Amino acid sequence: MTDDKLRYIDRAIQAYYEQNLVSERLTEAILYSVNAGGKRIRPMLLLAVLEAFGHELTMSHYQVAAALEMIHTGSLIHDDLPAMDNDDYRRGRLTNHKQFDEATAILAGDSLFLDPFGLIAQSNLSADIKINLILELANASGSSGMVGGQMLDIEGESAQLSPTALNQIHANKTGQLLTFPFVAAGILAKQSQAVLASLRQAGQLVGMAFQVRDDILDLTASFEELGKTPQKDLAADKATYPSLLGLEQSKTMLDQLLNQAQAIFQTLEEAHSFDQTKVVAFIERLRLNG
Rank of each mutant, 00 (worst) to 15 (best):
87 D>M: 03
66 A>Y: 01
67 A>N: 04
71 I>T: 06
61 H>L: 00
44 M>W: 02
84 M>I: 14
40 R>S: 11
56 E>Y: 04
82 P>H: 06
74 G>I: 05
37 G>Y: 02
94 L>D: 15
67 A>Y: 04
80 D>F: 08
76 L>M: 08
50 L>M: 05
90 R>L: 05
75 S>K: 05
72 H>S: 08
58 T>K: 13
72 H>E: 03
67 A>L: 07
50 L>T: 02
76 L>E: 02
53 F>G: 10
92 G>E: 11
40 R>N: 10
75 S>A: 12
51 E>M: 03
55 H>G: 03
65 A>C: 01
90 R>F: 00
79 D>N: 02
76 L>C: 02
44 M>P: 02
77 I>H: 03
95 T>E: 09
61 H>A: 05
56 E>I: 07
74 G>L: 06
55 H>W: 11
64 V>H: 07
53 F>A: 13
82 P>L: 00
58 T>C: 04
93 R>E: 14
55 H>S: 15
78 H>W: 09
53 F>R: 10
64 V>R: 07
37 G>S: 07
68 L>Y: 01
85 D>A: 10
77 I>N: 01
78 H>Y: 12
68 L>A: 10
46 L>G: 05
69 E>N: 06
70 M>D: 09
78 H>G: 03
65 A>D: 01
92 G>Q: 11
63 Q>H: 01
70 M>V: 05
44 M>G: 00
81 L>R: 11
93 R>Q: 15
47 L>R: 14
74 G>A: 12
54 G>V: 13
83 A>E: 15
51 E>V: 05
83 A>Q: 13
73 T>P: 01
46 L>Y: 07
55 H>P: 04
73 T>Q: 03
73 T>K: 00
73 T>L: 04
45 L>E: 03
46 L>P: 05
66 A>S: 11
79 D>P: 02
78 H>M: 15
86 N>D: 15
63 Q>R: 07
46 L>H: 07
50 L>V: 03
65 A>N: 02
93 R>K: 15
89 Y>I: 09
91 R>I: 06
71 I>R: 14
43 P>C: 07
92 G>I: 09
81 L>W: 10
65 A>Y: 01
73 T>D: 01
72 H>C: 07
60 S>L: 03
54 G>M: 15
59 M>D: 14
84 M>S: 05
74 G>Y: 14
94 L>C: 09
94 L>M: 13
59 M>W: 09
79 D>R: 05
45 L>P: 02
91 R>H: 12
94 L>E: 15
39 K>D: 09
67 A>W: 02
69 E>L: 06
73 T>Y: 00
53 F>S: 08
50 L>P: 00
50 L>I: 06
50 L>E: 02
79 D>Q: 06
91 R>E: 10
61 H>S: 05
86 N>P: 10
63 Q>C: 02
39 K>E: 10
71 I>M: 13
38 G>P: 11
47 L>Q: 08
64 V>G: 07
82 P>C: 00
80 D>K: 13
95 T>W: 08
93 R>V: 10
